[in-house]
Design a protein around this nucleic acid. Structure first.
Lengths: 335, 335
DNA sequence: CTTACAGAGCGAAACGTTTCGCTCTGGTTA
DNA sequence: TAACCAGAGCGAAACGTTTCGCTCTGTAAG
């Protein structure tokens, strides 16, 4: 059995209170310090963090609930976040809900039962009630990517509308008037914002909106592939396509490759978040990416601020971060 | 403050023992069941898992220590593992050590202090002593990818030697005699195995080993790029290259693309693990991949077996899984 | 010399749940 | 009717740490 503080007490003749005081930075006489340290080394004692958590009412654990762990968007953020949390002594419980609303609710419930000190979440759908309950318990919540209506908590969001506007502007400036967009699902905050940015750009460049060029996918590879194929196989295909997330960008490239279409001569394509395709394809795919490391850092800062602050009742903070443009040769003038 | 079992006891007039018995599946009279359930609903009671962990000496938490969260190899496995653990009530603490041996040791120590019930780890280097201590505490450990010398614990490994043999055999069968390999660091189990498989194939096809065609990288994108460039820029470059991990494969493709070399006419290239390049590039890059989902499942099975088994002293189990071949047009006959 | 105060250590209780062993009750069997 | 047994509930203690309030001691100041 692992040594407990009682074993240290027996070996040193000191009280539990003194040993605890020493371990937690209190002042203890030098001779007692040495005796405690020697006993710790001798017995290989480590604090039982569970017992500590029970008494202090802090588990030193943060729950992180994400829609898909294999998504680069998720992993870059979590990697950054886990480091930052570790630096201040927190452990990170990971839960992947695989884009499934029921699993989202199930794993949120699971985390809520775990005495987490805080929650980081990329929400998908209607978990507002469960989140409100967490907030009632003064558990800090930081949302990533999309806010939850009616929930007063911190969030780190990307300026998706602006990013989309800028990407589509590139296509418009290259002379394209038949610019298609492959959106995410209607009603999803990020998808809506990216669509609005597209519309903003069309309006700005006085290009008439053609509803047939607006396709709604599920933010997965397959819908990127299928919708791109559908657009390209039309009698009157678009001359340019803007794809609005990482997975659909990949699917789109698959469909383009399958038809051996040359970019930018035969089709202009701009993707989202898929930085690898910006670097591997010839010509490089132009992509607009979310600043993943910065998101992770910002989330960590917000959360740590809440966890370590005296007054946890400050108003919610919403941070908007700019996307990053990675130019490439996948779009150009009409030919 | 969240309701405790004492609040339920007050409301129902029942003892803590009865309530606990009910919550943990024991038999309680129907009238008492109803009273307890009603009180739980009324007060929004949830079990304090920290208190439960202290008493039961089980945290229901598994530590997962990996070298790089942004690596697809890691995320696929963890995604699978997290699901399986969740299904049996365990939470998954993630720790990313960024290929840094000191951080590996630090985060292993961090996890060891966390009363984890088990550990899953992709080891990098000399953490044997810390792992031995965990094993002494009867904490199940499952290693992924590489064993640790002198450590008696479960492991899930891929037949890297065989995978390498098979990939290089393809190049040999296509007639190549100047086949280069970009290995990982010497002394790293997987790197050594993949090199041995290369050597086995050369021997099998009676191709003389040319040490200049054996390059040692650091299993990162940069070394894949640099070493491929070095090989290709020689006066007498290899006609074929086998790159032995995901990141170096990507780096290699970057170097090939930069020189506008055509595959397979000017160079035959086979990669490792980078399934995306198998699907996106034209022609598709031939790759041999590790069966990530299967690894995750196997790890979870081993661990759950240890966690739920009566006799935790069974001999260590080492599972070897076959790699998967994804054919592509990136290699072919000499031209 | 006496008083006051600060430093140091300690005992006891608490955190919220689980579990063991005891007691009681009701039903069944002889 | 009496004895036995199983089911049900309960009280108390335990898990390992933290923290509060009390006591003691030594030093400095009046």
């Amino acid at each position: 059995m692992p040594a407990t503080m009682k074993d240290i007490a027996r070996l040193t003749g000191l009280s539990l209170a003194t040993i605890s005081k020493y371990l937690n930075g209190g002042h203890v006489l030098p001779a007692n310090q040495r005796a405690i340290e020697q006993a710790i080394n001798q017995l290989g004692y480590t604090v039982n963090s569970v017992a500590r958590s029970l008494k202090t009412r802090r588990s030193m654990t943060i729950g992180v609930l994400i829609p898909h762990l294999e998504n680069v968007f998720s992993t870059s953020i979590i990697s950054e976040l886990e480091d930052k949390l570790h630096q201040v002594g927190y452990s990170t419980i990971i839960c992947d809900y695989h884009h499934d609303p029921e699993m989202e609710a199930e794993k949120l419930d699971f985390l809520a039962h775990r005495q987490i000190d805080g929650l980081v979440m990329m929400p998908l759908s209607g978990c507002r009630d469960a989140l409100v309950k967490l907030r009632e318990r003064q558990i800090p919540v930081v949302l990533i990517d999309r806010p939850v209506e009616g929930l007063d908590c911190d969030a780190v969001l990307v300026k998706n509308r602006k990013a989309s506007f800028q990407a589509v502007s590139r296509l418009a400036e290259a002379g394209h008037e038949r610019i298609a967009i492959i959106c995410g699902p209607q009603g999803v905050y990020t998808a809506d914002e990216r669509l609005y940015g597209y519309m903003d750009a069309l309006k700005h460049y006085q290009i008439k909106l053609d509803e047939d060029l607006v396709q709604y996918g599920n933010y997965d590879t397959k819908s990127g592939y299928v919708l791109t194929a559908r657009l390209l196989d039309r009698q009157k295909p678009p001359t340019a396509v803007f794809v609005t997330n990482h997975e659909m960008t990949y699917g789109s490239v698959l469909a383009v490759n399958e038809r051996d279409l040359l970019m930018p001569k035969q089709l202009s394509l701009i993707g989202f978040d898929h930085k690898l395709l910006n670097q591997v394809l010839r010509p490089p795919l132009a992509v607009v990416t979310q600043p993943l490391k910065q998101i992770g850092q910002t989330v960590a800062e917000l959360l740590v601020h809440r966890l370590t602050g005296i007054n946890r009742q400050e108003p919610a903070i919403i941070k908007y971060l700019d996307a990053v443009w990675h130019d490439g040769g996948s779009y150009g003038p009409l030919s």
